[in-house]
């Protein structure tokens, strides 16, 4: 694994992947949005508002997925002291936080016509809100130290502690019988969604996954460039001093 700890080698791979993942994001989003908005049937009960789901559900998945990515990267960073894992963790948190916000906002927009309220204190909504605060706490902690390495390590411990929330969110709708509907796609006895609705949903989910990959690689590239700049400046200062 440490073969890929070399930033130069990583940059080569990242630069090779980036154009593909960028185009995959653009194309899948365009196709997914077209299918979701024009080429899928309205729900017989919810009518046209069901189309909010095509953004809401993938965003919720990504909110959790990014946290799992963050936790795995933190674990790798703590156990193997892999330098790129710290950068990946730092880059994952803001993306996950934004997806969580999108999930909460679209959920509110959907909840108003369906449940008659922007917000209810339901188990899944509350646990998603806690997830958002975990992301914000992680971002604040990582940036709170003068030494960036110390911030990254503290953030890694926090990310692993916060990982207990992930199964709670996933199973909150099964454990507590609340207003939010139970899982309909990832369940033991197969999805309970009709195929014409399921396909655009999965396309959108894939588009969001590629978006995450693209932004992650971009952010990691930026972090590596920033680190290079820092060391170049330090070298300059040292050269000037002697």
């Amino acid at each position: 694994m440490h073969r890929y700890a070399n930033p130069a080698r990583f940059l080569k791979i990242a630069n090779a992947i980036l154009p593909y993942s960028l185009w995959a994001t653009v194309l899948l989003t365009a196709v997914g949005l077209y299918m979701a908005l024009f080429n899928s049937p309205p729900d017989y009960q919810q009518g046209e508002t069901v189309r909010i789901m095509y953004v809401h559900v993938p965003a919720a998945w990504m909110g959790l997925f990014c946290y799992i990515g963050l936790a795995v990267a933190s674990f790798v960073a703590l156990v193997w002291k892999h330098p790129l894992a710290d950068i990946a963790a730092k880059a994952s948190a803001p993306v996950g936080a934004v997806f969580t916000v999108i999930c909460l906002v679209t959920g509110a927009l959907w909840g108003k016509p369906m449940w008659g309220a922007w917000w209810v204190w339901d188990a899944r909504l509350t646990s998603m809100l806690v997830l958002l605060f975990l992301y914000l706490g992680h971002m604040a902690l990582v940036n709170a130290f003068d030494d960036p390495g110390r911030g990254a390590k503290a953030g890694a411990v926090l990310a692993l502690v916060g990982a207990v929330n992930v199964p709670i969110i996933k199973f909150s709708v099964d454990w507590w019988n609340t207003l939010h509907q139970p899982a309909a796609v990832f369940r033991m006895d197969g999805p309970t969604i009709d195929t014409p609705i399921l396909i655009p949903l999965l396309v959108m989910a894939l588009a969001f996954k590629f978006y995450y990959l693209t932004v992650l690689l971009w952010a990691m590239r930026g972090e590596i460039a920033a680190a290079k700049l820092r060391s170049a400046r330090l070298a300059e200062v040292h050269a000037g001093a002697t």
Binding site: F133, L136, G137, A140, L141, A144, F145, D146, R150, G151, A154, V157, L158
Partner: peptide, 15 residues
């Protein structure tokens, strides 16, 4: 976790 951090007290409540 917040030992040595800037604004540790506020940060602590967020964590």
């Amino acid at each position: 976790l917040v030992l040595g951090a800037r604004r540790g007290g506020v940060l602590l409540s967020l964590l």
